[in-house]
Every structure is written in structure tokens, then in C-alpha cells.
Amino acid sequence: MMSEAETAFSIRGLDLWYGKSQALKSVTADLPARSVTALIGPSGCGKSTFLRTLNRMNDLVGGVRIEGSVLYDGVDVLSPSTDVIDLRKRVGMVFQKPNPFPMSLYDNVAYGPRVHGVRDKARLDDIVEGSLVRAALFDEVKDRLHESALGLSGGQQQRLCIARVLAVEPEVVLMDEPTSALDPISTAKIEALLDELKRDYTIVIVTHNMQQAGRVSDRTAFFLLGELVEYAATKELFFNPADERTENYISGRFG
């Protein structure tokens, strides 16, 4: 197990190109384990690209070239010999729009464990219930686990997607604007959930909502034009940023 102050991701000199355009420029950062790191910056600044690099989701995009290094718990994430399936099991992802599979709640959550070979019914029951509890959804849906997930509200669907990620027992949860499609009540539930989850999981979250970054994260990274401009304790970054570009962005003077 990683200790409290231990580094989950160690990123050094990360460059990334989509074709000829450079999306990340020599990004260097250590992301601490079991805490929430927020990635902020205007559209196209590279924050989502950076997030997707952490579990190799950029592999799915054509014409990508990456240099530099990303270490996760000692594993060289970018190495061609790294088992991507195993990596993505350890480093799960929640997307902007809730994307439940068109099947029952139960089967959504059991999907990952089944793919990873869990067949025992009692064991699956435990995983499904435990994951829904940890995603703060179980009480709301326990009587309709076998109904379609598509009947849930947007906020419930997103928590279902979080439960689906938790079901494969990841160590890290990456979140790409997980509340941007949700109403304020659902957003508040997800934010409260993040506070619970960070006790056991490392969370990295991309958000366009600056107040959200301020509320939920321990550290914040501000990206601009592919550059990591400032990366600091959230309270420091929002109260007394070191870089004028950070100040201008979080004060709403551009972006």
C-alpha cells in the first residue's frame, strides 16, 4: 500500500503531439496518492489530454506521439510492454456524460468483474452492493437493481458509472468533467462522494467549474496552451497564485 504522502503518478517532461500540433509541453508533476487533484484551464489547454495519458486512453486516438515519462506506482505507463488492460483496471475513468450500458443496474456494475473472470453469484452480489454503497447510490436503487439503468436520473446514472468503475477495485479514478451534465443537487452528491472516495482512492478530476476545483481538490494544476503553468495546493492557488496567468484565468479575465 502507498502511504499518505506517497506519489501515485510521477510525470517527467511529458510532450504530446496530435499530428503536428503539440498538446502537452514538457509537463512535469507528481500527483499524490489518496487525494484529489484538479486539472483546470481553458478549452484546448491540454488538461483532458493529460488526464487521458494517465491510463493510456490516448492510444485510441490516431496520430498521437508521446515523449517523456509517466510512472504509476513504479510502472512505466507509456511503455509498449505495459499491460493496458491491467493498467485501466487499476486506473479507472469516469466520463463527462453518464454512459450506462443498456442493461440492468446490476449488470452494469457486475460487467467489469465478470470481464475480469468473477463468476460466483454471491461474490458478484457483494461487489455490486459494495460498489453502489461506495458510490452513494445503493439506498436510492436497492429495490430496482434489475431494472434498466437507462431509467435513472442523470445524477444517478453518473454515480452508477462511478460504481461500475469501483467494482473492478481500481486504485485511481480519473474523472473528465464528471458533473458538467448534472444539476446542482446531483453535483453536490458527487462532490461529497469525492471527499469519501479520496480516503481509499487517488482521484484526478478535470473540471471547467473553478468553484468545484476549489471545493473538492487538495491540489490544483492549471494548464494553458499545453503548458502546466502552475501546480500547487488548491487553497494557495485560489487565494494567492504565483503566476499572473493563473490569477487572470481563475478571476475570469480570459478563457
Binding site: 473553478m210 468553484q211 476549489g214 487565494f239 494567492n240 497564485p241 493563473t246 490569477e247 478571476s251
Partner: peptide, 9 residues
């Protein structure tokens, strides 16, 4: 307005 940084200070 939820001011931050210099504006908040």
C-alpha cells in the same frame, strides 16, 4: 461573484 485570488484578497 465568487471572487478568487487578488479580487478576493
Amino acid at each position: 461573484q465568487q471572487p478568487v485570488a487578488g479580487n478576493l484578497r
